[in-house]
Write a protein that binds this DNA or RNA. Structure first.
Lengths: 155, 155
DNA sequence: GTAGATGCAAAATGTTTGCTCTAAT
DNA sequence: ATTAGAGCAAACATTTTGCATCTAC
């Protein structure tokens, strides 16, 4: 059974993620239950940043015993171990991302899609320490808000 | 009665905001009820980005009839009319900001403070359209995550 | 008296938690 | 047997909503 929905991710890229995931789980001593694997598989194969409920709904038919609580607990576990990251694009539900490369997000205000976006220029921001008032910056998040290609043509 | 808590904002700056606020409300045809004024006053005088509940708690003693629902409705109204903006720094509650100048946020991962941060360099990002895949960028949000000055010295 | 604003409580939403049961060592 | 994980339901936090009441013109 697979949990692949759209073809954003190529088969090869998905397999690469899954392979890395299995490896990391081994190193971390995390057991690979069918639930965990299914949850990760959804995220690895879909770059649309699904939320917990989305993930649950997609797996449920193939794994009817799955409970939503497990999805939440598993996503938190994954996040704690750096296997996925959490995106708060809008105020509502958290959405998850298996893309661990440094990247930012395009956030479509019309359809609420969140699209990964990579740009070397944005990896280090030209922030002058004067304005920071002693704040020690560890990392940064950039959201570019706008209208995605699909929504522009649809309208 | 005043709702000023900390002295981030100078009296003059607060008055300036309040004045502009009254003006905009007039233009927009929004009635200035005591509740609305009190809610705006909290935001105008406190740059710590309080949430709805915070605002409610701070006004309640002076205006005991106030209900939390009104706070939510009012904040939404203000946001719709561009009088305040909404910040989703963490996944939990939304936080609000009367600072309408273009700015970004320093987000302290320890104490969860959100600090306004202005930097002319960051107003236009060097984003090359190639990576955008047709996405039309309208605006951007930058969160610098790290540890604020207070938390560094406390620790 | 009409329209808009408020208060209150219920509902909706998203998430976390406690507890029990199961499964794997 | 012990222990981690899963399922279930209740609890929780935040926000939204419906409706009755109030207030200002």
């Amino acid at each position: 059974m697979t949990f692949i929905r759209d073809m954003d991710m190529t088969r090869a890229a998905i397999d690469h993620r899954l392979h890395a995931f299995r490896g990391r789980c081994g190193e971390l001593g995390l057991s690979l239950t069918p639930q965990r694997l299914a949850i990760y598989q959804v995220l690895a194969s879909d770059d649309s940043h699904p939320g917990a409920e989305d993930i649950y709904r997609r797996i449920k038919p193939d794994l009817p015993s799955l409970s939503l609580g497990t999805v939440y607990r598993t996503l938190e576990l994954f996040e704690e171990h750096g296997l996925v990251s959490r995106v708060h694009a809008f105020g509502d539900q958290a959405r998850f991302d298996a893309n661990l490369d440094s990247h930012h997000h395009l956030v479509c205000i019309r359809c609420r899609r969140v699209i990964d976006f990579q740009d070397a220029q944005l990896e280090r921001l030209p922030v002058k320490p004067e304005g920071l008032n002693g704040f020690r910056v560890l990392t940064h998040r950039i959201h570019l808000l706008g209208v995605c290609h699909r929504c522009q043509t649809d309208a």
